[in-house]
Design a protein around this nucleic acid. Structure first.
Lengths: 336, 336
DNA sequence: TTGTATGCGTTATCAA
DNA sequence: TTGATAACGCATACAA
């Protein structure tokens, strides 16, 4: 039994009404007879009517779809953000089109173009680690496409953002290590082009300064987030005459690669060297020793970013930039 | 500078051509003058023309979108599948709409309905662990919506599937444990409603039979995949007079929860009890001891499922069921 | 309160 | 080889 899609016309014909009346009844406009409205709603249900969203879009210019670009879907932090977005979007009748930039600027540009072709009503993005130009994003304003950054943001851009307070969180994490008695705290940073990296570095430096702690430029290294790069950094730490006794890593994945490599080199954690991460991903309670980390509310971040975007979609004159800062929490485990 | 979207009409006006000629030129139909075609293509590029996919769909009934339903986006296996699908789909000009069922049948039904409303050209799905009725899926055939299962499939359904050879893989995994010298091998299963669980159980049983090994019904337990449920199972194993000396778990997450709980109970792994998992997720090389596991080619699975779906979309008379079976590989680590 | 007519941007079917 | 015109399904301005 093959059913063609039921249209407004079909319902109208069956009820001896005009298409526009049926349309009005279903859109729940006030100017309509209660009786006819009931009849229409009933018939629509009986006939299993589903509105054709494409025809609707052609009229209204609203696709009911929002686009998401993340660097890597397989990173738990991002899939969790998306989970939160999905939640909010489905509740509000919006679909999600998800793209990965694979940490590449080229791919990111292509993703944005694809999303524009799909006429998404708005875009949520977390930047690739390569992104150092922003034309592909700034042109969105010309096209009046609402746009919200989350996590990896472009701070000077004219768009709203949802972030954690990176500087403060990093400050607190460093302070936590100081209170724990560590004297030589290293910061294993990520690509400084990312604002999260820059800000976390700043928080780290401020904490040291605040406590009149030693600051050694050799202790701040930069990993490109890959395992190999992280291992090179660790080797550099180990070669130093003045070795750090704790490492604050830019995220959990880097922290975990630190731990694995340190263990391979026979370094005892946390006795000889403590390690701390960012994000509280599932692996952090699997690694041994369990990783002390700064919990980022990824699911909520996704939800909030989606909510803000929907708000901007519904209220276009709201286009002014707004920054949402979420709180983090230190999860103490065995690596510190 | 706010640009409205350029349409065929705009191009036609500029070149003093008719809309249909422009349309033909851009669709690369053969019945057209080479000269005009060149002119049109050039103008389109200059004017930054992007076709309105919604208008196109209204005519052609093809949305250039495919829908995906997974139980849990945050499980690495699934995000990796999706990564593979994305790859294939974007290459072929298709977008992906991704939904999560959160392991709930109700939610799964809702997802399918949403995707139908969005008039997706086809659907890729991995079933929720609750799914025991299939009406919401079988009606897709009535609507002629191509449909492919991956990983968690409904075997008797009329649809194509992409799976690993669960029975054989599990057979080999069990045999591997036998060769390693384990004598009392337990199988910690998942919900038997899932075909992957049923088949892996079968492979396990066949291997034992093949080697004239002891088979104890107490050694086959069923976890609902949650941590709590897995821990209950482990406790049951430990209470037995005839304790198993190895556990083959239905997936890595279950296996990892086994290891954590066994360690808490003071059991030495693999000396007192070995543990083996399925899927080779990132955590498996983070847990200690590193988890021996059966690698599932998740990325390729996603790619293949998407490819098959695209094939069925392009060639509707191909609707017969086809089963693709991918090979697995045992990754030997320290837990066995 | 309801119906008629029009257009959104395409593609497809004619005729020229 | 090109152009005029209709149609896809819906929303809406206007008329009744």
């Amino acid at each position: 039994m093959i059913r063609e899609h039921v249209t407004l016309k079909d319902i109208a014909k069956k009820l001896n009404l005009s298409v526009s009346t049926v349309s009005r009844a279903l859109s729940d406009l006030p100017i309509i007879n209660e009786e006819t409205k009931k009849k229409v709603l009933l018939a629509a249900k009986e006939m299993d009517y589903h509105p054709n969203l494409f025809a609707k879009f052609l009229k209204t210019k609203s696709s009911n779809t929002i686009g998401v670009v993340v660097p890597d879907l397989e990173m738990h932090f991002f899939s969790s953000c998306i989970s939160g977005m999905q939640n909010t979007c489905l509740e509000n009748g919006y679909n999600l089109i998800i793209c990965q930039s694979n940490e590449s600027l080229e791919q990111e540009k292509f993703n944005i173009k694809t999303l524009q072709d799909s006429r998404v009503d708005g875009i949520l993005i977390s930047l690739s680690r390569e992104t150092n130009s922003f034309d592909h994003l700034e042109q969105l304003k010309d096209h009046q496409i609402p746009f919200v950054y989350f996590d990896r943001v472009h701070e000077n851009g004219p768009y709203s953002q949802v972030v954690i307070n990176d500087e403060e969180s990093s400050f607190e994490a460093t302070e936590y290590l100081i209170h724990k008695g560590y004297k030589k705290i290293a910061f294993l940073c990520g690509p400084k082009i990312l604002s999260i990296c820059k800000n976390r570095l700043m928080g780290y430096q401020n904490a040291l300064r605040n406590h009149q702690m030693d600051f050694n430029t050799d202790w701040v290294l930069e990993s490109d987030l890959s395992r190999a790069s992280t291992e090179v950094c660790i080797d550099n730490y180990l070669r130093l005459n003045d070795r750090p006794d704790a490492i604050l890593a830019i995220n959990d994945i880097v922290a975990i690669n630190c731990i694995r490599h340190l263990k391979k080199k026979g370094i005892k954690i946390p006795k000889e060297m403590a390690v701390m991460g960012f994000s509280n991903s599932p692996v952090s309670e699997v690694i041994e020793p369990n990783l002390t980390t700064v919990e980022q509310p990824s699911f909520d971040m996704g939800k909030l970013a989606a909510l803000r975007l929907l708000e901007e979609i519904r209220n276009p004159n709201l286009m002014s930039q707004k920054i949402f800062t979420l709180n983090t929490k230190i999860i103490e485990r065995d690596s510190t």
